[in-house]
Design a protein around this nucleic acid. Structure first.
Lengths: 216, 216
DNA sequence: CAGGCTATTATGTATAGACATAACGAGTCA
DNA sequence: TGACTCGTTATGTCTATACATAATAGCCTG
């Protein structure tokens, strides 16, 4: 429970559960749980029969929570403001259809909006909602409740794919975010699924001052 | 093990471990493990005495592994190439000293290098290594082995802080990455620690074509 | 009735024993 | 020699039981 970062060398096989249990005067099940925790944390690798060995390349994993924009803004002490920019039922363009894995031109709801902190644009949200999976979204105006919040309460998901990158704004997006055209923006995209059916695709733009932080 | 996304409503309290154990004909310990897994996945919240309830806002967590640049490039089928740009023992500037939480002007090793895939710049690495924590790094030239790889094998860490953002390149960085000045770049920064002592601070720049993907 | 103490209750964690499963290694047979 | 089989071994997972701990509910007293 508190070894393995001192004496054992990477790649080295450590004693079996039975031996460790005897050494610590604990039950094998307890040692098992402890070792499994170390395995989850990436410190050791376990294989049946071969035994447990200290990981060569500690493949550490970080966890990060799905952000709720409003909470993110309020957590940093700013006053949250929300403004819907547009809302329109529309046929999806090819690029979005590909992400949602639906036919081009399927019935979708397209909502764009702006989240601000202390009056300054914080995130521009450009979202497509698959009305075949979430038909009730069609009745929402999203004038005061952001799609982000509505969806976390109304459309649970089982899988998600995030992607992050840097890009330059086009003129329209720059105007909404209050930036000069061709500014560098941080783009986060997310597609969510519920048991194989796509729910929503969202593209979130942040001004260059924005930093996403993760601890582990 | 396969309930809770159908019948139980968010916020609702579900039967206790004892009852579930009886229902499934399993031991309480087994039900406990299952419920703890659900709690880790964020689907339910548990509190002593109060019982287990379905989470209001399923605070899902994504895991992402610490990337090894070489593996990342090779995994996408490209040929990996490494080039050291500079190496110099130097006093740390204020901004870096703050990140590493050491005194300004402490003895550090500053290494910059470029990772390429199929001949195209993939990541520019600008790294400071704390020689007080990792003195053996001072003997490394990093001409053929990247600091990234050397450190994962030689300096395990217990904590890390990542940050990601978009910015525009300065002239020197743009030149190394083969971009026009003022291009938008994706910046990932990372500080790692071992039991309260900072190990290294690295700033990684990616050209705008780069996308970081995470699944959950 | 308020404040504090205690009993109850559900989860947290441990033990010991049993069987399942995967993987390696040795021995067997064509 | 090579492929196959089978036994050994270490981990994976479960059962059953016991005790620890935290939090609530209710009682008891001043």
């Amino acid at each position: 429970m508190r070894i393995s970062k001192r004496l054992w060398l990477p790649g080295e096989t450590i004693p079996g559960e039975e031996a460790l249990a005897a050494e610590f005067g604990a039950a094998r099940a307890t040692v098992n749980r402890a070792l499994q925790e170390l395995a989850r944390a990436g410190l050791v690798e376990r294989k049946r029969k071969s035994g447990t060995r200290v990981a060569l390349h500690p493949v550490r994993e970080a966890r990060f929570v799905i952000p709720l924009v409003r909470a993110e803004i309020e957590a940093s002490g700013m006053a949250y403001a929300y403004r819907r920019v547009s809302r329109k039922e529309d046929a999806v363009p090819d690029a979005v259809a590909a992400r949602l894995e639906i036919a081009t031109g399927s019935r979708c709801l397209h909502v764009t909006c702006l989240h601000s902190g202390d009056g300054r644009p914080y995130q521009y949200e450009d979202r497509w909602i698959n009305l075949e999976t979430v038909p009730t979204a069609g009745a929402e105006s999203f004038e005061t409740v952001s799609p982000n919040e509505w969806l976390v309460s109304n459309a649970p998901f089982s899988q998600a794919r995030f992607s992050f990158r840097a890009t330059t704004t086009d003129r329209a997006e720059a105007a909404i975010l209050g930036l000069a055209a061709d500014s560098a923006v941080f783009v986060a995209e997310r597609v969510t699924w519920l048991s194989g059916r796509s729910i929503t695709f969202v593209r979130m733009l942040h001004p260059p001052s924005h930093t996403m932080v993760m601890d582990m």
